[in-house]
Amino acid sequence: MQHVKMITLASAIALAATVAWPQSAQERGFAIAQKSDLTDQGFGQSSVKVTMTLTNRSGARTTREMQIDTLEKSGRGNGDKSLIQFFSPGDVDGTALLSHAKITAADNQWLFLPSLSRVKRISSANKSGPFVGSEFSFEDLTISELGKFQYSYLETKNVDGMEMDILECIPAYNRSGYSRVLCHFDTQTNQARKFIFFDRGGQKLKTLSLTNFKRYGSVWRPQKQTMVNHLTGKTTTLDFGTYNFNAGLRAGDFDSSALERL
């Protein structure tokens, strides 16, 4: 009996290797997301200046200047470590937010308040709240992390003049602000190009478009991200400067004790 099992298993493996085995939508979806994640592997660290522009329905604009330092993830269940420093508006100049991202759990986050030189560990239970008054929530900033969703392949079609694989992404984090996200990956470079978010009630809420892709060695970075809120008509754009992948950042720069010495 044991032998029979072994033989059927062996032949099944042989069959799978030779024949294009019908893949489930989930397997195909995960494979696409994983392929995209792999294109980003090994970037190590990066530092980039970002201008955030918030535009309301009537067109009034405000801007925020910040710098985002990132240290690539290590180990399962962990996301990247990131340090966001704010330079403007003036009253938030010097404020910094350090995050040790967890894929499906609450992140560890520390806030630095420059007027008191105080480092404060904060609750990050609410990843879906607005990030500094913008249309981005904190979970949107780490949208591309593999494992944040259960992926399911829907279709491949031409969107914005590009052939894209479209996946239905169901958030794995139970406190996510979304019921589902339509994730778009281009079939040529496997980069995430567009995300359409549906709120808890199933209503289409926001669209995030990643554009102006630039190649840095083996990795790609969108130089512009545009988030449109369909319910409020508000827009937030992130314009990225030139990425520095050799900023000389150390693991210690992403420790909470480093915040008071920025």
């Binding site: 008191l116 030189s117 105080r118 480092v119 404060k120 560990r121 150390r250 210690g252 008071e260 010495r261």
Partner: peptide
Amino acid sequence: FGDGWDITVGADRVFWGV
């Protein structure tokens, strides 16, 4: 700043506590 250490000389503001 050295490697894993740093030294400060001058006037500064320090916050301890939660």
